[in-house]
């Protein structure tokens, strides 16, 4: 009520007064709490982590060791395995998921398609699950004598069970499939809403010129969606490089260290093994460097295509 009344009085007043940002201290008061909290819980701990990464020792007995933690990284087989796994997950899962999500969004954007809402809801539904909950479900679905093996054998796709959980290769596949299942629909929604803003007449003109569906996809759809593809690929990159919940709950990092991720290794170093906070902090800077590195690369790739 109050706002509608205000609305009326504004219409009369706004003609006379143009809105100008007010100067002075008041604006800073609005942002003060956020600035303090972000400094306290992001920038200050980050600085602490940097200082810790130059120290080493068990628990609270830390000593300054210079760059020793960083040189140790390169000869630590567990770290190298975790780095390799994380990069593999990122390099395979992110493009795989984005291509699938693009494919679904183009299919569902077709005006003549029936049951559109039903398909969209079904494919999006995994995005409402908690990461831990769906991970536990996937752990059972893909256990060596689990339902996925039973179904694949009944369909005669495989003749003997795949050892999803005890084979290093298949364990990685399970993690990739799980993350893809969880996030494809989520990303699809972004593309779908972007596609709805693309003018249909562009496609009509392309068809008149004899462009195939493939050409339309690569010459029109992809360039039109470029900003949103960049946005989703960067958020997916940051997410995948920090992967923790899924390997922790599906495979526990195993078999061996075949699905161990960097985040999991940091957790193990800090809270599972004899705590070595200094070395754990050095490991965490590996993720920071990768996030910055891959984000810059993606920005560059997107920029160059223009």
């Amino acid at each position: 009520m109050e706002t509608t009344n205000l609305n009326k009085s504004i219409k009369q007043k706004s003609e006379k007064y143009k809105f100008k940002p007010k100067k002075g201290l008041i604006g800073w008061i609005f942002i003060l709490i956020s600035v303090i909290l972000i400094c306290l819980f992001y920038f200050y701990p980050m600085l602490q982590a940097l200082l810790l990464s130059f120290q080493s020792g068990a628990g609270v007995n830390l000593q300054f060791v210079g760059l020793e933690n960083y040189t140790r990284l390169f000869s630590d087989p567990t770290f190298l395995a975790a780095l390799f796994n994380t990069v593999i997950f990122f390099l395979i899962q992110v493009p795989f998921m984005i291509i699938l999500a693009l494919m679904f969004s183009v299919m569902l954007n077709n005006k003549k398609l029936k049951f559109k809402g039903l398909f969209r809801t079904a494919i999006f539904l995994p995005a409402v699950t908690s990461l831990v909950a769906y991970s536990v479900i996937f752990k059972y679905l893909f256990s060596n004598n689990g339902i996925i093996n039973t179904i694949l054998m009944n369909l005669s796709i495989i003749s003997e069970p795949i050892l999803w959980m005890s084979d290093p290769f298949w364990a990685k596949i399970v993690i990739i499939l799980a993350i893809t299942w969880r996030w494809v629909g989520y990303n699809m929604i972004f593309y779908l809403s972007a596609l709805q803003n693309v003018d249909e007449s562009i496609y009509e003109a392309a068809r008149m010129d004899g462009a195939s569906a493939f050409q339309q996809f690569f010459k029109i759809t992809i360039p039109m969606l470029k900003p949103i593809i960049l946005f989703t690929s960067i958020t997916s990159t940051i997410g995948t490089l920090q992967l923790f919940d899924e390997p922790m709950n599906i495979t526990g990092g195993g078999p061996g260290n075949a699905t161990l991720t960097i985040s999991q290794y940091i957790y193990d170093l800090s809270f599972e093994y004899t705590p070595d906070f200094g070395y754990a902090s050095a490991v965490s800077f590996a993720i920071v460097v990768m996030i910055v590195f891959f984000s810059i690369i993606q920005f560059k790739l997107a920029g160059d295509k223009k």
Partner: peptide, 13 residues
Amino acid sequence: SMMIPFAALMVPL
């Protein structure tokens, strides 16, 4: 701060 991975903050926090 969006670029900072939580794994890096976990120990100091």
